[in-house]
């Protein structure tokens, strides 16, 4: 079972606010899931290469060119921001 202190630490890393009750719930759930996935320790993976791409696609590259979307896409993207000033996205200051 993972400790409550560790669960709190993970919540901080994940940038999520939780109530104490929720944290206790996660402690239980995460422990059960971790116990289940521990099954993987049964598999002998000595000398096995990890898979990050299942189809072995080669790198696909393209020229790094500036392109205009040709419509009002940029305006719509800016418009989606919750807080803005003119065409700037506004955030709280960081000190």
């Amino acid at each position: 079972m993972i400790g409550l202190k560790q669960v709190k630490h993970i919540a901080e890393l994940a940038r999520i606010n939780f109530s104490d009750k929720e944290l206790e719930g996660f402690q239980k759930d995460l422990s059960a899931i971790l116990e289940y996935i521990d099954k993987l320790k049964e598999v002998d993976v000595d000398g096995v290469a990890p898979t990050s791409h299942s189809v072995n696609l080669k790198n696909i590259t393209r020229l790094d060119e500036t392109k205009s979307s040709g419509d009002d896409l940029a305006d719509r993207l800016i418009e989606a921001a919750p807080r803005k000033k003119g065409r700037f996205v506004k955030v709280k200051p960081i000190f």
């Binding site: 993972i2 560790q6 669960v7 993970i10 919540a11 890393l13 994940a14 999520i16 996660f26 995460l30 899931i33 971790l34 996935i37 993987l40 320790k41 598999v43 993976v45 096995v48 290469a49 990890p50 898979t51 990050s52 299942s54």
Partner: peptide, 24 residues
């Protein structure tokens, strides 16, 4: 939460890397 735990310092090899090997 689970993903953050799995990728946090000290657990990467035990979980994520092992899973990618079992995936192979």
């Amino acid at each position: 939460m689970l993903g953050t735990y799995i990728l946090s310092a000290g657990y990467y090899d035990a979980y994520y890397l092992r899973a990618q090997k079992v995936r192979t």
